[in-house]
């Protein structure tokens, strides 16, 4: 995590106990940052993947119905009378990510990653807003859970829609761009040490160049890594036109984009990449 701006935002997020809102194109490593934070702080990473219709039963808690049913049958066979609290107690509670994150039994503040919040809907955003202000969850049958250690919250968004300002206002905002050549090369070397230096430089250079083109979906760092992995699997030491054409699908995920880059464009970029490294 070499970026000073990101480091400052993160430091403040920890000090001010505020969520960190990371926005940027898909594949720039937003999720990775949460993982790194949890490694550095040596604490658990709890991840909630967002989607439309995400509700309390998936995000916060749910009752374990199978266990409840068995309890009912068991009581029947023993001819016992069941009270409500016998079924709706802590033993039957399934803790979903948000409840796990504020659970009193946590010894250390965990990192709570709320991933791709732009995929959820307004209903969930509203709920999140409430949770992030007091870190409390109330389960009507049991009572209120309050975080003993406030989790370190990281919220990410790919900007497939605008997330409500009210939510962003509560957070420290950081926009993540694609890394520059040097930084991306460093990442490629670290993730794929078995690749030759020449291949690493060419792959990084090539990806950096095609991000400058008008594409529907620019390749992220994750795609760069996938690509070099594919090339290493093919025993390549350097890029040439035919291997680029054959493997372009690893990098670009729209047919329009593949058509745009293939052929003359590939040739041009390759000659530049070869010249520079």
């Amino acid at each position: 995590m070499s970026d000073r701006g990101l480091a400052t935002s993160l430091f403040l997020a920890l000090k001010l106990e505020r969520p960190l809102f990371l926005e940027g194109e898909a594949g720039v490593g937003k999720t990775e940052i949460a993982k790194v934070i949890s490694t550095i702080l040596d604490t658990d990473l709890i991840r909630l993947q967002c989607y439309e219709g995400l509700d309390v039963s998936q995000a916060v808690y749910e009752w374990n119905y199978t266990r409840q049913m068995m309890q009912i049958r068991l009581a029947e066979s023993r001819d016992e009378r069941l009270e409500e609290q016998d079924l709706f107690g802590p033993d039957f509670l399934l803790r979903r990510p948000l409840l796990q994150a504020i659970d009193e039994s946590q010894e250390k503040a965990p990192v709570l990653l709320i991933d791709e919040v732009d995929r959820s809907d307004e209903e969930f955003e509203a709920f999140l807003l409430e949770l992030l202000s007091d870190f409390q969850v109330s389960v009507p049958e049991i009572g209120t859970f309050t975080a003993k250690h406030r989790p370190v919250v990281v919220v990410t968004s790919n900007r497939t829609r605008e997330v409500h300002d009210a939510l962003k206002r509560r957070c420290l905002y950081f926009w993540i761009d694609y890394p520059d050549f040097e930084k991306e090369l460093e990442i490629v070397r670290a993730k794929m040490p078995e690749a030759s230096e020449q291949l690493s430089r060419q792959v990084t250079g090539f990806v950096q160049e095609i991000r400058e083109l008008e594409l529907y979906k620019k390749p992220g760092v994750a795609e760069t890594i996938d690509w070099i992995r594919a090339l290493v699997a093919l025993d390549r030491e350097a890029l040439d036109e035919s291997v680029v054409e054959d493997t372009l699908g690893v990098l670009l995920k729209y047919r329009d984009d593949v058509d745009h880059v293939r052929g003359a464009q590939t040739e041009k970029i390759l000659s530049r990449v070869r010249a520079s490294g």
Binding site: R4, G5, T8, S9, L12, K168, Y173
Partner: peptide
């Protein structure tokens, strides 16, 4: 009061991450 205010980039990033929330 938490960052070194004399360092311009820290001051810049601290204020940006708190005062800006749209790219």
């Amino acid at each position: 009061s938490l960052v070194s205010i004399g360092r311009r980039s820290d001051f810049y990033h601290a204020s940006r991450s708190l005062l800006v929330h749209r790219r």
